[in-house]
Design a protein around this nucleic acid. Structure first.
Lengths: 247, 247
DNA sequence: CGCGACCTTGAAGAACGTCAATGGTCGTGG
DNA sequence: CCACGACCATTGACGTTCTTCAAGGTCGCG
C-alpha cells in the first residue's frame, strides 16, 4: 500500500484528523495555507537554538532531528520527525528556540507563517485544538525517551527506536512488511540514545546476532516483529496513532 | 518575602499571565472556576496509568511527581510539580493516561473538571493559549531532562535538579536566600535521574565535599549559587519564567 | 588513485549498579 | 520511659555496562 499525496499538506491534515475528523471547510482552510517548499541536504540546520522564528516547518519528505548541543561537542538528539509532522509548533507560543532542528537525510520541508496559522486557529478553534494535541503527542514521546534513557539498556533502547520509527513510518504509508529505509548513522543513533557510537555498534551487532534485526545499506528489516517489541519493551499506545492507520 | 495567596488559584493565574496579562474578565472567569480541594499524603496516587480522567489537578501545596513504572519494579519519574502547576492538562486532549501522578510530600490539590475548563477556553481563547503554553513549557522541561540523562554525569544531573527546583520554587515565592525545603528522598531522586539510590548518595556526598550544597533534615542550602549552576551546566531559559518573577 | 564518511574491532579504564550490612531518626505502642 | 519497627542515609566489596582512545577496514565518489 503506497500512499500518493494529492497535496503537500495531505499527510499533515490526515494526521491532525486522526482524533476527530474536520469539516470540509476546515480541511479546505488547512490545505489553502500558503506554504513555501524548500529542500535540505543531510546535516543542514532548519532552525537554530536562540532563533526567534516567524514560521513553522512541516516535514514533507525525509527525516529531521531535534537536537541540542552542550559543551565539549556533546549533542543530544531529542526526537526524529518524518513526513506529516510539524516539529516546531511550540514556536507559536514560546518565541525563543531552546534547541535546533536539522535534516538527517535529504529532506523537503514546507514553511508556514505563524501569522497565517494564527488566523486559521482563531477562525477554527478545532484546528487549534488539533495542533495543541500534536504538541502533546510530541511531549508523550519525549517522556518515553526519558524512560528509555533512565531505565533501559543500550540494546533495549536501540530496539525501541527501531520499533517506534517503524510504527510512525508505517502509519503514514512509508513502511510495509517490516522493512523500512533507515537513513541514520550509528553516530546519530548514539546522539539520540545517550550512548557512544562504539557502544551502539556493538549493541546492534548483538541484536543482529540474535536475528532480531537486519540493517545494512540504509535499509532496516525486522524479521520477527513480536520478538523485537518484546526485546524493546515497546508498547505503541504513547504514539496516539489512529487505529485505522495502525492496523 | 513570603507570598500570601488570596485565592487558591492565585499562583496558577499569575503563572498563566507571565507571558501576557489577562483582562479582568478573563482573570475573574479563571478564579470563578469550580474546584474541589483534596489533601494527599506522601506516596498517594492522584491519577494512574490507564485512567481516563474527567478532571485536571492543580497543585496548591506540596510536591507532586509524574512517573511511569515499567517491568521489574523499575520506576522513572519524569517531572516534579509544585504549587501553581497543573501537571495534567494533556488529559484535555489525550483521554487515556500514559503515566501516573503521585504526591511526594503532604500535598493539597484542586480538582477542576474538563467540562468547566472547556467552556472557559471556548469563551476565552487567550486562556486556551495560555494553557497550551503551559504544556509546551512542560515539554521543554522534559527535553532538558532528556539532555541530562543522555549527556550529563550523575553529579551534574543532581546539581541540575537542585538548580531547577530552586528556581521554580523561588518564582512562586516558596524559596529565598538559596535555601529551600527539600522533601525528596535519595531514592526518589534516583528514580528521577535514572540512577541507583546508592550512586545518588555517593554523588551527593561529593557535592557536599566540594561545598556546593548542604542537604539535611529536609532542607537544601546552596552556599554558592553560581558555582552550583556552573557545576550543573544550568541555564534557566528553558523554564520560560517571567523576568519579574525570576529576578 | 585517494580521500572522506562510516562501520568495526581491541584494549583499558571510568562510571555506575547490585548486594548486603550498619546506623540514625522518628513515631508508635507497651 | 523504653522497645520496637519503618524508613532512610551510608558504607564496603564486587561486578557490569558503557566510554574512551586508537587503529584498521569498507565503500562510494571526485
Amino acid at each position: 500500500m503506497t500512499h500518493v499525496a494529492l497535496h503537500p499538506l495531505d499527510t499533515f491534515v490526515r494526521k491532525l484528523e486522526s482524533f476527530a475528523p474536520f469539516s470540509n471547510e476546515e480541511r479546505q482552510a488547512l490545505q489553502g495555507l500558503p506554504v513555501k517548499v524548500r529542500s535540505l541536504h543531510p546535516g543542514q540546520d532548519i532552525v537554530h537554538d536562540g532563533d526567534q522564528p516567524s514560521h513553522c516547518w512541516l516535514v514533507l519528505d525525509g527525516w529531521v532531528a531535534r537536537y541540542k548541543d552542550i559543551s565539549q561537542g556533546r549533542r543530544q538528539i531529542m526526537s526524529f520527525h518524518i513526513a506529516g509532522e510539524c516539529p516546531d509548533l511550540q514556536s507559536l507560543h514560546l518565541p525563543v528556540m531552546d534547541h535546533s532542528l536539522c535534516a538527517m537525510s535529504p529532506s523537503t520541508v514546507a514553511y508556514i507563517s505563524h501569522e497565517s496559522l494564527r488566523v486559521l486557529m482563531e477562525r477554527f478553534p478545532r484546528i487549534a485544538a488539533a495542533l495543541w494535541r500534536e504538541t502533546l503527542v510530541d511531549a508523550a514521546i519525549f517522556r518515553v525517551w526519558m524512560v528509555g534513557m533512565g531505565q533501559r539498556s543500550a540494546r533495549e533502547r536501540i530496539a525501541h527506536l527501531f520499533c517506534e520509527m517503524y510504527v510512525k513510518l508505517h502509519a503514514v504509508g512509508l513502511a510495509e512488511h517490516h522493512r523500512v529505509e533507515w537513513p541514520l548513522t550509528q553516530s546519530s543513533m548514539a546522539h539520540a540514545l545517550g550512548l557512544s557510537n562504539v557502544h551502539v555498534n556493538r549493541a546492534i551487532q548483538d541484536l543482529r546476532g540474535q536475528g532480531l534485526v537486519v540493517l545494512n545499506k540504509g535499509t532496516l528489516t525486522i524479521p520477527n516483529w513480536r520478538a523485537l517489541c518484546d526485546r524493546a519493551g515497546f508498547d505503541p499506545v504513547y504514539l496516539h496513532i489512529d487505529r485505522r492507520a495502525a492496523a
